Amino acid sequence: MSTTAARPAPDSPLGKLMAALPRAGTVEWIGVRPARDTAMVAVESAQASTGGGLTGDRYKGGNGKRGITLIQAEHLPVIAALAGHEHVAPDTLRRNLVVSGIPLVALKGRRFRVGGLVLEGTESCDPCSRMEDALGPGGYNAMRGHGGLCARIVEGGIVRVGDAVEAL
């Protein structure tokens, strides 16, 4: 099933509710994974290629559905609390972008702009088994429902810390 098949008609009452977002978000952190099983590298900006991924990131998007991964900054303290930590650093969770101020779940199946990029939310970014090592026992479950969003890169460009995140 496509991500758009389950969406209500845009002019329906539910469609209108799902389209209304309180405000734009902000890119708080950017990270790339240069190789498998290596630490992420925080960067101030990154180039993204259409249908691919971020320059310097080992994961180049594969089938295009996971060209870039995003997580909400507001979920980091929740994940930390559920995993029994005071805080969790963004690189621990291995997502490319940490954004604040916008509910990522509302961008699933939609196109949105992040700085110079146009992305399309494709699927939830579920945690992987590595979260047990990163967060300790139960780390996988601490992230469930808080793992963020995978997105396809529809229009490449540059994304920078501080850029706006806006639904199109």
Score class of each variant (00 low, 15 high):
Asp133Lys: 15
Arg58Ile: 02
Gly101Pro: 00
Thr26Glu: 06
Gly101Leu: 01
Leu97Trp: 08
Lys65Tyr: 08
Gly156Trp: 12
Gly64Arg: 15
Met131Tyr: 08
Gly53Val: 01
Gly162Pro: 02
Gly67Phe: 06
Pro77Ile: 11
Arg66Leu: 02
Glu120Tyr: 09
Asn96Thr: 09
Gly61Glu: 02
Arg94Leu: 07
Gly157Thr: 01
Leu135Asn: 10
Gly136Asp: 07
Thr26Asn: 07
Asp11Tyr: 11
Val78Gln: 15
Gly156Pro: 03
Tyr140Asp: 01
Pro10Met: 04
Arg33Gly: 00
Met18Cys: 07
Arg33Phe: 00
Gly148Glu: 10
Ile68Asp: 09
Arg33Pro: 00
Met143His: 11
His87Tyr: 12
Thr69Arg: 09
Thr4Gly: 07
Arg95Phe: 08
Ala19Thr: 06
Ala5Val: 08
Glu120Gln: 15
Thr69Met: 04
Ala134Trp: 10
Tyr59Lys: 07
Leu14Phe: 07
Gly121Trp: 06
Thr3Val: 15
Glu86Val: 03
Ile79Pro: 01
Met131Asp: 04
Gly25Tyr: 10
Pro13Met: 10
Glu86Ile: 00
Ala20Val: 00
Gln47Lys: 10
Gly15Pro: 00
Pro8Tyr: 04
Glu28Tyr: 11
Gly31Ser: 12
Val118Met: 12
Gly31Asp: 05
His85Thr: 01
Met131Thr: 08
Ser2Cys: 09
Gly31Met: 05
Ala134Cys: 03
Glu132Gly: 03
Leu93Ile: 13
Ala19Glu: 14
